[in-house]
Amino acid sequence: MNIADLRKSYEKAELNENASHADPLQQFEQWLQEAIAAEVPEPNAMTLATVASNLRPSTRVVLIKGYDARGIVWYTNYASQKGQELAGNPFAALQFHWVELERVVRIEGRVEKVSDEESDAYFHSRPLDSRIGAWASPQSQVIEGRTVLVTNAAKYAAQFMLNPPRPPHWGGYRLVPDQWQFWQGRKSRLHDRLRYTQEGDQWLRERLAP
């Protein structure tokens, strides 16, 4: 089949101004909970886009680990490529794509590190092998082979036993949104697309052409 011939008609739902929440966080929570209830694969997976000092963008998939009025939280290695890019340019974009529900959520804003207390609490809630893995992987660095990871994991498992501390290079980030977009697929490519833009303490909700 010619890849250009692949297409789908989106007809599962609609998104209009009257039925959507005035607060984008409430709209996001509703859609996230509906994705979880629908048992879509990894509803907590989101694409994170950052921009390096040379203005080249890069993306990767991370997992949301918390959200509230302060923003969207995930955890990672601060020395990784994304960590280095955020250190130089603390603005980023997130995207959730729930294919089965024909929905996309896009979020943009400034990124900050969460507190040490928040990072410690989450780190110690992780399975032991994940905590060891945070020490074992020099994320984004070139390594000679998988044996480097296996050797490092064995080394730190022996060193820390059952109580590995949080590595100083590992912790959480929070994206503080100043713009949200909610996209609902519709028939004939006339999709529903609502944008929320922060204006002071309020959110301006507007419909965008798809």
Rank of each mutant, 00 (worst) to 15 (best):
M1S: 15
V73A: 03
H21I: 13
D201K: 14
N44F: 15
D178E: 12
R186G: 04
V148P: 05
A121H: 09
I107G: 01
G66H: 04
R106W: 03
S137C: 06
R166D: 05
A79N: 15
L48R: 01
Q27C: 07
T147M: 07
H21S: 15
D201R: 12
W98R: 03
V176R: 12
Q95S: 09
R110D: 01
R189E: 10
L94Y: 00
Y78L: 08
S9D: 15
R174P: 08
L204K: 14
E112A: 10
G185K: 03
Q81Y: 10
F123W: 11
Q179D: 00
R189I: 12
S58R: 10
R56G: 01
A79G: 06
P90Y: 05
F123A: 02
Q141V: 14
T151K: 14
P41L: 12
R126Y: 05
H191A: 02
L25K: 08
A69E: 10
D120K: 09
E144G: 15
S125A: 13
Q84R: 14
I132A: 03
A19P: 02
L101Q: 05
Q81W: 05
S188H: 12
T147V: 13
L208N: 00
Q179W: 12
Q95C: 08
P127C: 07
Q179A: 13
V150Y: 06
T151E: 14
S125G: 08
E39S: 12
D68C: 07
V114A: 04
P210Q: 02
Q202R: 11
D68H: 05
A37C: 05
T151Y: 03
E29R: 15
P168Q: 14
K12T: 14
F96Q: 01
K8T: 13
F182D: 00
A93K: 00
G71N: 02
R106V: 04
V176Q: 10
V104F: 03
R7N: 10
V148N: 06
R205E: 00
G66N: 05
L204H: 11
R166A: 00
F182M: 01
A157N: 05
H124R: 10
